[in-house]
Each structure stands twice: as C-alpha cells, then as structure tokens.
Design a protein around this nucleic acid. Structure first.
Length: 503
RNA sequence: GGUCGGUUGGCCGAGUGGCUAGGCAGAGGUCUGCAAAACCUCGUACAGCGGUUCGACUCCGCUACCGACCUCCA
C-alpha cells in the first residue's frame, strides 16, 4: 500500500480513511444501467469514475471484487408506481419484439461503448431477471421481519416502521420522514394501497398488459424498483461490503431505499462507504434522457452533432473526464474538449519521449541533486493526490509538470547528469502505471496492424527526409513534410532527430 | 415550496486561513534552413456586501445568480 487511502463517504459526509472489511480485499458494488435505450455520455462518465476507483484499488494491491449490475427488469414509468407499463415492456411493444431482445441489444451496445472507453468490465455483471428468486426471498424476509406488508398482491416497504426501528431512513440523502410525508400529500390519491406516502413497492402485481412477469407468493408480478441491487450486492459481496457507488441522482430514492431493504432483510446497512459521482452537464444542465440534451458517445466520436464542431476520440473524452474530480459536475463544451485533446496529446507524447530514454546508455548522475529531488516529490505528490479521494485532476497536474521536465531533458534544457538511474526508472514506471493502469488511457496511434508497420514506414520516411536536409535539399525535405501534413501527420524536428505524431 | 450543493483569471478546472495548481488559448523570447514541436518568461483570478482575524479566495452571516434531488435517470 503506497499511501493511506481516503474516501469521501456520502453516508457520513466526510472523508474517511479506507479500511476494508477483509484485509487486502475490497468488495465494490456500482449501480449499472437500465438497458432500455442507448447509453448516453452521462452514464459513461459515472462508470469511468468508478473505473478509476477500481483500477486504483487494484494498483494499491487490493484484490477487488467489482460487481456492476444490469437492470433488465425495467423500472416503472409515469406518476404512480402501480398499473403502468415498465420501460422495457413499452419499448418492446413499440418495436414488436421480445423484451429480452431489447435488453440484449442495449446491453450489447452498452458493453461495446464501455470497451471503447477502456472502462474495465466488472468481475460480475449480474442481471436482475436472473435473480427473481432471490428477490422474492428478500421480499419474504422483509415481510417476516415486519417491515413490509402486502396489499392486493403488491408488497410495500413500511418506511414508518423502519424509521421507528432504526432511525436512519433518509440519512443518506438528508431527508426527514416528516418532510417526505408532507410533500407527498398532494398525490395521496394515487397511493391508496400504501399505508404511508413514503412507503415504496418491493413487489408489484402485474397489470394484464405487462409483459415482464413472474410468479410469487403474492401475485404474478415483478420486483420493485430498488430491490435488485440489495439482492445482488448481498448475494455476491455479502451482507456487509466495502464500497457502494453510483451517480448522485441515485441517492434518493434508489440508494435510500436500498439501504432500507438491506436493514429490512439483514438488520444492517449493506456498505461501509458510499460514493456518488457527480453529473455531466450539457450547457449547464444535467445531461439526461428526459431533458433531451444528451449526446451519444457515437455522436461525440464522429462529430455528428450540432453541439460540437468536430469529433473527439474516446481517449480524449476519457482524459477530459479525468481533468475534473468525480464529485464535481463537469460541463461539456466544445472548447473544453478541444483543450482536452491538446492536453491529452501533450501527456501521451511526453510519455513516449520518456519511455525512449535509455537508462543504460545515458550519462546519469550517481547522486541526485535538486532536480532529482523535485522529480521524486512530484511523483510522490501524484500518488498522494490519488490517495486523497481519487483526485485525478491534481495527480494530472503533477504529471504535466513532469512532462515539462521530460521535454527539457529531451531538448537539452535540463541535463541527465542531474538525475540518477533509479529516479529515471521510477519516472518511467510511474508514467506507464498512471497513464495505462490507473487512468486507463490508451495510445491512439492509427497503426491498426499492431506489428509496427506504420512506425517502420515512418522511420524510413523521416530518414530519407533527414538525408535531404543533410544535403540542404530543402525542397525535398519540405515536400515530405508538407505531404505528411496533408495526411495529418506532423513532423517534429528535435535535437536527437525528427519524430512524428498524428494530429 | 422543501433539502443540498455551486459561483475561481479569455475558456476548462484544482486547491488553500498568509506561500506557483494544471491544461487550453494569448503575448514576448530561445532554438530551427524555414516552420512545427520543445523550452523560458508574462497576465497575477477567486459573485456582491458585511463580520471574525495580525491576515480570507479559503471561516461565519446576508444578498444575487446557477444547479441537483424531492418523479425513471449515472
């Protein structure tokens, strides 16, 4: 373990030192997507944030079991929670195909996009429809514990009793049960099956037209909105696990009710640390499906949207997200993306240059001086910042300062004679670790052959240009440079010869 | 309406009771056959009004504006 890891716990509202339930192991559950339409970029931000958490925990040496569900039961639509079609059934009816076909299509699409963003797949990706039995069992357990009641084939969680018994309903979202009662008074008419307005359904009797339905002791129906996460986290991570994550918009009611259900079934909260990622904004407003201001990843990559001037690659977008802390909102703008594109390239080019430094053939210091010290403190700082609630923007700032050092070493403004081999090796390793393992960035070279053909060809071309330059044949050398520029390849002349990058 | 959060230089975005965030853009310079890249230097920002303090962008209060949740949402 490099540093003491601190995590901001939404449940207590404080940054806390992370202590796993089992030494060296971490159980982490993140609420996954509802697969009734294409993922939009806001979803991606959330999963990218937790990908960093997952990656960094592993980097610190923890053995992590990461569970992220797929909600394929479909959540209810409309004002009331009874008698309405769920989203997946509705879509299925519109498209005249099986609900499971819808689920499969969008689940595939989701996983493809996750892969494009280099977001690691979880260790277990359980589906709600595959855990109907367990959900029924949990409903029964909650009833047995006296915290739920049946009404006309549906089962409701008794929030008032829960509040009396444990006194924690509303703790996560900062809500009071009296407020919940007061604000629900208006739509009381829609909720006559409930004993209390803040009660919520954990099993719902299916209306005749409802397509997704399963038998249960209470009715042919389907599980309630929040039950699957309680069930699946408990099944795969145990009754008490370490980290529960999700978007900030899930705090209430989803996570609040999840906590209630776990108390109802097990007598205690499911997770020790709750983490909430903040929203991705578009034009200052939360990007959401219902607002209609969401941009699909594909549109962002191709530039096929009126909101942006050009396409941005997946890694540029990933880098863009890293520049903001996960608990802050992130406003998506074309200008910011352009800045991120340049920044991403600077970082990656810097790393490329760094990795080409050959420790064996360089004249390095035997004893480090100020520069050596400075480099080491910047590296230390980057890790400290990551360990301070996953502060990726701060860690990036240190890396960028190191990029300047690297470029100065390359350009001769700083001397290799000022740093030791140990430090240079450490710097090289740190960059690779951060960029690839922790931040999950990828090179976006266009050499898809994977065997360096393009690199080889480019080296040949640059050699030929160098020959032309040596004989002061500027016409020939400029012709090569201009022709490459047409192909979006930029030639960069340096002290140690020319290099290139794709624009 | 209730609850919570935000307001940082041209843009994005960290952070802190007194000390350089970082990226992008801009200006000047070095280097270069030219250019690009790279390097160096620069702008000296923290919504407004009060208060606490030796000192506040950072703490407290008020005001303004913005947003999130309260309904499916990452």
């Amino acid at each position: 373990m490099k540093n003491e890891l601190k995590i901001y716990n939404s449940y207590t509202g404080q940054k806390e030192v992370f202590k796993p339930v089992h030494e060296g192991r971490v159980g982490m559950y993140v609420c996954g997507p509802t697969v009734y339409s294409d993922v939009h970029l806001g979803n991606c931000r959330s999963f990218a944030s937790f990908d960093i958490v997952y990656r960094y925990l592993q980097y610190l040496g923890y053995k992590v079991r990461y569970v992220r569900n797929i909600t394929d039961v479909g959540h209810l639509e409309g004002d009331a929670d009874i008698g309405r079609e769920d989203k997946i059934s509705k879509k299925a009816r519109l498209e005249e195909i099986e609900p499971m076909e819808i689920v499969q299509r969008y689940m595939n699409g989701f996983q493809e996009i996750m892969a494009v963003f280099n977001i690691s797949p979880p260790n277990i990706e359980p589906r709600a429809t595959g855990h109907i039995l367990e959900q029924i069992e949990m409903v029964q357990a909650i009833i047995d514990n006296g915290l739920a009641y049946e009404q006309n084939g549906s089962v409701y969680f008794d929030t008032l009793k829960f509040a009396e018994k444990y006194g924690v309903y509303g703790k996560l979202s900062g809500r009071k049960i009296e407020d919940l009662m007061a604000e629900s008074r208006d739509n009381l008419k829609n909720q006559d099956e409930k004993r209390h307005p803040s009660d919520f359904a954990i099993w719902i009797k299916a209306a005749p037209e409802h397509l997704m339905r399963w038998g249960s002791p209470w009715s042919v129906g389907f599980p309630g909105w929040h039950l699957e996460c309680s069930v699946m986290s408990t099944k795969y991570l145990g009754e008490t696990f370490d980290i529960h994550g999700g978007g900030a918009d899930l705090k209430f009611p989803h996570h609040e009710n999840e906590i209630a259900q776990n108390y109802g079934a097990c007598g205690h909260a499911p997770a020790n640390y709750w983490m909430h990622g903040n929203m991705l904004l578009m034009n200052g407003r939360k990007m959401s499906k219902s607002e209609g201001n969401s941009i699909m990843p594909g549109e962002l990559f191709t530039g096929n949207s009126s909101l942006i001037s050009k396409g941005y690659s997946p890694m540029v977008v990933r880098f863009f997200m890293l520049q903001t802390h996960y608990r802050s909102t992130l406003d998506l703008t074309d200008e910011a993306l352009q800045a991120a594109e340049k920044g991403y390239r600077r970082l990656m080019e810097g790393n490329k240059a760094l990795q080409q430094f050959d420790v064996a053939s360089l004249k390095l210091a035997t004893e480090g001086g100020d520069l050596d010290k400075e480099i080491n403190s910047l590296i230390d700082l980057a890790f400290e910042d990551m360990s301070d609630d996953f502060n990726t923007p701060k860690a990036l700032a240190s890396l960028f300062e190191l990029v300047t050092k690297v470029n100065s070493l390359k350009g001769g403004q700083l001397s290799f004679g000022e740093i030791t081999a140990t430090t240079l090796e450490r710097l090289k390793k740190t960059f690779n670790d951060f960029i690839y393992d922790i931040f999950g960035l990828r090179d976006e070279d266009f050499d898809s052959s994977g065997n360096g053909v393009v690199d080889g060809l480019m080296q040949l071309i640059l050699d030929m240009r160098q020959d032309a330059r040596a004989s002061k044949n500027w016409a020939a050398s400029d012709k090569i440079r201009d022709a490459l520029k047409e192909l979006d390849i930029v030639v960069k002349d340096g002290k140690e010869g020319a290099s290139w990058s794709k624009n």
